[in-house]
């Protein structure tokens, strides 16, 4: 057991407070008292919020739901790093034993033009949903599909697709990216579906639509910093961005030659 097992700590929180989408925001300082090393980060916020409520003040609003690192709801930048910077760990799974008594912690919402702030640490991430709505799917109908074993998929391919599919859609990649780009998110989806035979039929159309949707939804451009990979709580790799680039280039090349069309509703030349 660690030395701090029974010790508690007091921390200073410097938190971004903003009462609504178009309201001005500012940092405010709060004390988090009697926090044990076993508190999760969000449980520490719960403690602070209970104190605020009892003092008649507005609690800090933050997104959270499953609190076991899979739903992707929790989202705050801790001392400049989305989810706080512990490898492969969402904010809800970050524990206070990673902090010391007396630490000052800056808490900010995801910042990107694509993610407008709704309140305090809560941002609107529906732009990510819109990327999926643009083409992040296989256009199969319910029913009338082939048997699951009708098309064989090698284990390496299935594992590769699963690696990409680990994404929980939290948006930390966008928050971390100096350019507010969504390439890791889009790359993971494009790579997952392009790797599987079921998704290959629409691969060119998918990549074309998702790349366009990224611009339409105010995401920035990738400049290969790989900050996204560092911040991703699920260990999604930037090799999937390379895959996205490859799929794009391939589709562009094929379309230029007239062998495919990425415009739904038109036939190829």
């Amino acid at each position: 057991m660690s030395a701090t097992e029974h010790g508690t700590m007091n921390l200073k929180l410097i938190v971004w407070r903003q009462s609504g989408p178009d309201k001005p925001g500012r940092f405010e300082t709060y004390d988090a008292k009697n926090i044990t090393p076993h508190h999760s980060f969000l449980e520490m916020l719960d403690v602070v919020n209970e104190d605020l409520i009892k003092a008649g003040k507005d609690p800090i609003a933050f997104d959270h739901d499953c609190r076991e690192g899979i739903c992707g709801a929790c989202s705050a930048v801790v001392n400049g790093v989305p989810h706080g910077g512990q490898e492969r760990t969402t904010l809800c799974q970050l524990h206070m034993r990673k902090f010391k008594d007396g630490d000052a912690i800056y808490l900010e919402p995801w910042r990107a033009r694509a993610f407008p702030i709704l309140r305090d640490l809560i941002v609107d991430r529906t732009a990510l949903d819109r990327l999926v709505q643009a083409a992040g799917f296989v256009s199969c109908h319910t029913g009338g599909v082939a048997d699951g074993n009708a098309i064989l998929i090698g284990k390496p391919e299935a594992d590769y697709a699963m690696d990409a599919a680990e994404c929980i859609g939290c948006g930390a990649c966008v928050a971390a990216c100096p350019n507010g780009a969504a390439m890791l998110f889009a790359g993971a989806k494009v790579a997952q579906l392009a790797e599987l035979p079921q998704g290959q039929v629409e691969a060119p159309q998918r990549v074309a639509a998702m790349v366009k949707a990224m611009s339409d939804n105010d995401f920035g451009n990738c400049t290969n910093h790989y900050e996204c990979e560092g911040a991703c709580p699920k260990g999604v790799k930037v090799k999937f961005i390379a895959r996205l680039n490859r799929e794009f280039t391939k589709a562009l090349f094929q379309e230029t030659l007239g062998t495919i069309s990425t415009n739904r509703g038109t036939s190829k030349e």
Binding site: K155, A165, Q192
Partner: peptide, 15 residues
């Protein structure tokens, strides 16, 4: 199972 495979759900596979 068939439906999910068709959607691109990456179920575990053998070699």
């Amino acid at each position: 199972i068939d439906q999910c495979v068709a959607q691109g759900v990456p179920f575990a596979r053998d070699y």
